[in-house]
């Protein structure tokens, strides 16, 4: 079995702050992978519909927010290992990223963000010319 935290982590609410709605907010688990051309952020946000995901880039902060409604199945909750709530996580992004070209896609509860690197920081192979 993996030693990772499977349980969704709830965001800490500063004690002086009250949330408007009562739903908890979770920090989605992410993988961040960097290759030569881009950074890829993969986030687990199960239960979210594509239309309720909000990805914003502002002042070098990339924020993902997603709403996840309570399920409407009938019956009484008799056993529970997870709670339902919204998701929120922010990433601070350096100038290395070409922010205009950030892409997002969503499939089966997984949000993937592609953050292409700016051309100036991409590794470049310099051709060696013979004289």
């Amino acid at each position: 079995m993996s030693n990772k935290d499977i349980q969704k982590k709830e965001t800490a609410v500063p004690h002086s702050v009250e949330r408007i709605n009562d739903q908890p907010v979770f920090i989605p688990a992410v993988d961040i992978i960097e290759d030569n051309n881009c950074f890829k952020i993969i986030a687990d946000i199960p239960g979210t519909d594509k239309n309720s995901i909000d990805v914003k880039f502002e002042k070098n902060i990339l924020t993902i927010r997603a709403e996840c409604p309570e399920d409407s199945y009938k019956g009484e909750l008799v056993y529970s290992e997870y709670k339902t709530g919204n998701y929120e996580r922010s990433f601070s992004v350096s100038d290395e990223i070409d922010s205009k070209k950030i892409e997002a896609k969503y499939d089966k509860g997984v949000l993937t963000l592609i953050l292409p690197k700016a051309a100036s920081v991409k590794p470049r192979t310099i051709e060696v010319k013979s004289e």
Partner: peptide
Amino acid sequence: PPINMKAD
């Protein structure tokens, strides 16, 4: 995966 269960 985490599991929830409802019953009626």
